[in-house]
Each structure stands twice: as structure tokens, then as C-alpha cells.
Design a protein around this nucleic acid. Structure first.
Lengths: 117, 117
DNA sequence: TTGACATATTCCGGTATCGGTATATATTGA
DNA sequence: TCAATATATACCGATACCGGAATATGTCAA
């Protein structure tokens, strides 16, 4: 067994910086392959290959328009990543630190009440 | 050039499912290597190797305690992933759809005002 | 049909992975 | 010092990557 395929899931597909750049670009709207090539300064086969990976994990959709192929973002395919990483947000967000402090206070108060039973 | 090293950044480190499992476990608190081995059903070298990768990208910290090594999560190292993926949240979150609708209304109203100049 | 354009695929070399097995490096205790 | 425990590392085989270059496929236009 070797490293998981880049097409295994969104986590693997998105680990490649150029693929993230492509997604960032597509976030601005549908784009043809050569547009991406020019705007990112990559070679055409490079872009086609990255787009294939993104397609296979459902991160982009394609549409034929004459001799062009227009790619567009499929954002919801990123949700699993967002869901996973969001559960860690409390480890750096002040917002959650304050919430934790409040919950801590409530808990302490509860324990105090118990002593009165 | 081949695929980027797993130690290149958090994106690559986290693409491996077992490493995510380890982080999920450490989210519950500091843990020794053998605890992780038992709770995840992996072999000891497997765990040590994954921990090494996580350490090299700063996702975990270590502390020596006798003959054990206690690993703990360093959540903020996940922030770059969260930041990147969060910018796409609007593509699936109803919350943002509603916000977009409001902004659209405001814009339309503005354009209406312009006509009155 | 031929040629130009847009995109996809194939083949290659170099590299780094992941799991397994064996072994090395601490640290503790008798 | 010696054995036991806890963890890290080294080596291996198999796999799949990524970029580059060449080429294949597909579509339009004259």
C-alpha cells in the first residue's frame, strides 16, 4: 500500500497547492481551460490533469461549449473538510474561549447548587 | 518533482485519514503513544511515524514524562486550512444564501437611487 | 478535406509515500 | 548490570504522484 490516491477524497485532492489555486480562480466564475492556463501561468496539460483530479472528487463540474470546456466550482464538495476542521476552531478562536469561560462558570454554579441539597 | 511531502504543510499532513484520527483522539487530551496504538488499533511504528509527520508540521507537541512521550494537539496549526475552506462556505450554507439575498436587494435599491440623479 | 484551435491523454523519470518487520534508543526497576 | 517497557528509526516493496514532452481526440471554419 502506498499513499492514498489524490482522487481518494477532497482532502487529498486539495493538498496540492495548484489545485487550490484553480479552485480559487473558479470561485470567481466558470472558466475555460486556457483561461486557467493563462491566468495561473501553468502549462495546458498540467491544468487538464489537475482538473481531472478535481472532477473525479466532485470539486468541479464541466460543460461543453463548442470546442471549449467550461469548468465551474462545486463548492459543497468542500463541506467535509470544513466540517472536520471546524470542530477544532475552538482551539484558536477567542469567541469560543469566551463561550468556554461562560460554560465553565455555569458548571461551577451548578456544582455549588449541588452542595446545598 | 513528485508529490509534495506530507510534511510540506498541514494540508498534506491531514490528507491521511489515520493522522486525522490521531488528531481527533488528541483533541480529547494529551496521550502517550501506546494509548493511541491501543485506542486506534494501529501498530506502534505506524503511530510513531504518523506522529512524526504531525510534529514536523506543528500539529502536535511532545512532552517527555519518564519513559513515555506525551503528545498533545496544537490546534491553531489547522487555522490555515480553516481559513481557506471557510471562504467557500457560502457555496453551501443557507445562512450565506440569505445574506447574499439581502445584499442583492441593497444593490438593487442603490441602482434604483442612481436613476434618480 | 484540410488546417487551426482547444483540450485530453500517454509515456517518462524522479521522488516520496505507507505499511510491515526488525532493530535501535531511551528509561526504569531489580 | 540486566531485563522489561516505551518509543523511534531503518530498510523494504509496492504504489502513485507530479511535471515535461509528445501526441491523440474533438470541434469549428474555409
Amino acid at each position: 500500500m502506498a499513499r492514498a490516491a489524490t482522487t481518494a477524497d477532497a482532502f487529498n485532492a486539495v493538498a496540492e497547492p495548484r489545485r487550490r489555486e484553480i479552485l480559487d480562480l473558479l470561485a470567481g466564475g466558470e472558466s475555460a481551460v486556457n483561461d486557467i492556463v493563462e491566468r495561473l501561468g501553468l502549462t495546458q496539460p498540467q491544468v487538464s490533469k489537475h482538473l481531472r483530479v478535481l472532477r473525479e472528487v466532485g470539486l468541479v463540474d464541466v460543460r461543453d461549449e463548442g470546442r471549449q470546456r467550461l469548468y465551474r466550482l462545486n463548492g459543497p464538495a468542500l463541506k467535509p473538510i470544513h466540517d472536520w476542521v471546524s470542530s477544532y476552531e475552538r482551539t484558536w478562536s477567542e469567541r469560543f474561549e469566551r463561550l468556554d469561560a461562560v460554560l465553565e462558570d455555569l458548571k461551577r454554579k451548578d456544582e455549588g447548587d449541588d452542595l446545598h441539597d
